[in-house]
């Protein structure tokens, strides 16, 4: 059974339909890329999974349990860590406070020890955050803010991490650094990751499988290798002739 599964999901913004029968699955331990151009419904799909948007039809299940239509905070507590587009860190809170905000939405029983463990892990992964832990979030650079947004989601020990365009607005060097961290999270921690990217090349480099969205529908799916060698994908998304 897949860790995360969407079946025939329709979602709307008001009366405008944004997703048309989206079906996809993410297996435990995978990195799956969700690709598509602007407005294809990539972020909408993530929002529908994390409960920020309610699916009108279809089912969303996490480990076999239906999570479609639950409020966002309840979905987060079940282990879905959503790193939203544009990072959305708390700017007037310090780095440490931002991380604490991500901590313990689950059981209060394991709080203290789990918190320490997760914090060490995040600081280990992003030493820059440790250096700047008492600085306000808003004073960080874009790359550091992205690290903070990812770190904040890791603090709740998610079963699956939803990353929405982690490379947006970052210098190429930082993009590589962030993607390396994502690979490390996946390999060392075994964390399952659903990655939304405009930068298809980069995403297919680290993902094992991918889906391609076009105006709210999945038009193609396959392994990263298959997608990279597909004629259409190469032309449309990888910018090759």
């Amino acid at each position: 059974m897949a860790l995360l599964e969407l079946e025939n999901v329709d979602a709307f913004y008001g009366r405008v339909q944004a997703l048309h029968g989206v079906s996809m699955k993410v297996e435990e331990g995978e990195i799956v890329a969700l690709l598509g151009s602007n407005g294809a419904g990539k972020s909408t799909t993530l929002k529908t999974i994390s409960g920020l948007l309610r699916p009108q039809r279809g089912s969303v299940t996490l480990g076999g349990k239906s999570i479609g239509g639950l409020p966002a905070h309840a979905v987060a507590r079940l282990g879905v860590g959503h790193v939203p587009e544009g990072r959305r860190i708390f700017k007037s809170l310090t780095v440490l406070e931002n991380l604490k905000m991500g901590a313990y939405p689950c059981s209060p029983a394991q709080r203290a020890s789990a918190f320490k463990e997760n914090l060490d892990y995040v600081f280990d992964l992003f030493p820059r955050l440790k250096e700047r832990r008492n600085q306000r979030g808003g004073t960080l650079s874009g790359g550091e803010q992205q690290m903070l947004a990812i770190g904040r989601a890791l603090m709740m020990n998610p079963r699956i991490l939803l990353l929405d365009e982690p490379s947006m607005g970052l210098a190429p060097l930082l993009v590589d650094q962030i993607l390396d961290c994502i690979v490390e999270l996946n390999q060392k921690k075994g964390l399952t990751i659903l990655l939304v990217e405009q930068n298809a090349n980069q995403a297919l480099r680290i993902a094992s499988r991918g889906y391609i969205l076009q105006v709210g529908s999945i038009v193609l799916e396959g392994t990263a290798h298959e997608l990279r060698s597909d004629e259409n994908v190469r032309k449309t998304y990888l910018g090759e002739e």
């Binding site: 920020l52 409020p71 966002a72 905070h73 987060a76 939203p84 708390f90 905000m101 939405p105 689950c106």
Partner: peptide, 8 residues
């Protein structure tokens, strides 16, 4: 929105 997505 970010607070809600962190389980608050």
């Amino acid at each position: 929105v970010a607070a809600a997505s962190l389980g608050k």
